[in-house]
Amino acid sequence: MRRSALTTALTFTLPLWAFLALLLFPFYWMLVTAVRPNKELYNLSLNQLWTMHPTWQHFQKLLFATHFRPWLGNTMVIAVGATTVALSCSVLAAYALQRLRFRGSGVLGVAIFLSYLVPPVILFIPLARIINELGLWDRPAALILTYPTFLIPFATWLLMGYFRSIPAELEDCARIDGATRLQVLRHITLPLALPGILSALIFSFTLSWNEYLYALVFLSSTESKTIPVGLATELITGDVFQWGPLMAGALLGSVPVALIYSFFVEHYVAGLTGALKE
């Protein structure tokens, strides 16, 4: 019995704690920096791993002296919007490619997947012209419509896998009962595919939340920015980084997504699992 406890410690508890320490350390660092007064920030003789006199001043500055709150709202609107667009497109496309197997679906599937390979760094200049011609400049819609380009390929691939795991017999039964194809999708397949959709949703939401380059180029006015771009604009003043508010922003900017994740992480895993079942 004692030996197995030791084995558990060595093969499970210890490595797990090591991993947690590794993954959490940067967050810990953000936290101690976010509450550290500027005076302590530059003093190497103090304990670097702990903040002696924690202060809320950086959070206060972030929330009341910058545009953080509107940025939070924008980022939310854009992430929700882009995720909605991407998921709607992906669900339809994945279902068509996986279940309908229409003429040309094989080629299209590969094409959608390959579109994931195109690097955004070279897209944004030509893309800027298109955004402008469509009159989307400095509007959330510019990002809501462009983010799906890197969300759809992965989401479609994930959902195709998930649809595959749902027994076709269920749909066939409904078809025999006279349901249209769209009714089958809506009433049979979608409810069953919910975990898979949830996984795709979380994936899409995170990437939209974090995107930098398009947000930098396509949005202009201070109030319409997203969190990653806005923080860099207002809190990096020349060669002085305002570390406290920046780190406070990194923490507060991650909290909404982290909350969503902690509620859904099991569904996310389950959704992926479903997508992988052959």
């Binding site: 200049i125 800027a128 012209r129 402008n132 400049w137 202009s220």
Partner: peptide, 11 residues
Amino acid sequence: KAAAAANVGAG
């Protein structure tokens, strides 16, 4: 941003 504006002709 200026590069994008110069290239697009708007901004």
